Amino acid sequence: MIQREIIYTPGLWKIVDEILINDVRNKDRDPEMDTIQIDIDPIKNVIKFYYNGKGIPIVKHENKRHTFLR
């Protein structure tokens, strides 16, 4: 690891921060999770996130029409 000053876009930092927070919260839901990995490829401009947890639970909702009052 090399410590140096960098220039970054705050929006990109917020996206990375949100992904990491979600990964850590997933650890609370899945005690068997033991890996969070981040790969940064500055040549290809790619950041990859990996964790070996169960993932974020998804619940399917019925398609309903909404009526809005004015």
Results as ranks from 00 to 15, higher is better:
Asp17Ile: 07
Leu20Ile: 09
Tyr51Asn: 06
Ile7Ala: 06
Ile15Pro: 01
Asn45His: 12
Lys64Arg: 13
Ile47Gln: 03
Val16Met: 14
Asp23Cys: 09
Lys54Trp: 01
Pro57Tyr: 05
Asn45Cys: 07
Ile47Ser: 04
Pro10Asp: 12
Met1Cys: 00
Ile56Glu: 14
Ile40Gln: 01
Lys54Asn: 06
Thr9Met: 11
Val24Ser: 00
Ile6Tyr: 06
Val16His: 09
Trp13Cys: 13
Gly11Trp: 06
Ile19Leu: 12
Glu32Leu: 07
Lys48Ile: 11
Thr67Trp: 08
Lys27Gly: 04
Ile36Tyr: 05
Val46Phe: 05
Pro57Ile: 08
Arg70Leu: 14
Asn22Val: 02
Tyr8Ala: 15
Pro57Phe: 08
Thr67Gln: 04
Lys14Tyr: 10
Leu69His: 13
Lys64Asn: 09
Asp30Tyr: 08
Gly11Ala: 02
Arg25Asn: 12
Asp28Val: 10
Leu12Phe: 09
Glu5Met: 09
Asn45Asp: 13
Ile2Gly: 11
Arg29Trp: 04
Ile2Lys: 13
His61Thr: 07
Asn45Pro: 08
Lys64Gly: 03
Asp23Leu: 09
Lys48Asn: 12
Asp39Gly: 08
Lys27Tyr: 13
Ile15Leu: 05
Ile38Arg: 05
Ile6Pro: 00
Lys14Ile: 04
Tyr50Gly: 01
Thr35Trp: 00
Trp13Tyr: 12
Ile58Trp: 02
Ile2Met: 12
Ile15Asp: 04
Val24Trp: 10
Tyr50Phe: 15
Arg29Glu: 10
Glu18Pro: 01
Glu5Thr: 11
Thr9Asp: 14
Pro31Gly: 10
Met33Glu: 01
His66Gln: 11
Arg4Ala: 13
Glu32Tyr: 06
Glu32Phe: 12
Asn22Ser: 14
Pro31Trp: 01
Tyr50Val: 03
Arg29Gly: 08
Leu69Glu: 13
Lys44Phe: 07
Asn52Val: 00
Arg4Lys: 14
His61Gly: 13
Arg4Asn: 07
Val16Ile: 15
Tyr51Trp: 09
Asp28Tyr: 07
Val24Gly: 04
Ile40Ala: 13
Lys48Ala: 09
Arg65His: 04
Arg65Met: 10
Ile56Thr: 15
Pro57Asn: 02
Trp13Glu: 13
Gln3Ala: 10
Asp28Gln: 07
Ile2His: 12
Trp13Ala: 15
Glu5Trp: 14
Ile7Tyr: 12
Glu62Gln: 06
Ile2Ser: 11
Phe68Glu: 05
Asp39Phe: 15
Glu5Pro: 02
Met33Arg: 03
Asn45Ala: 14
Asp30Val: 00
Arg70Trp: 10
Ile40Asp: 01
Glu32His: 10
Met1Gly: 11
Asn26Gln: 07
Arg29Thr: 04
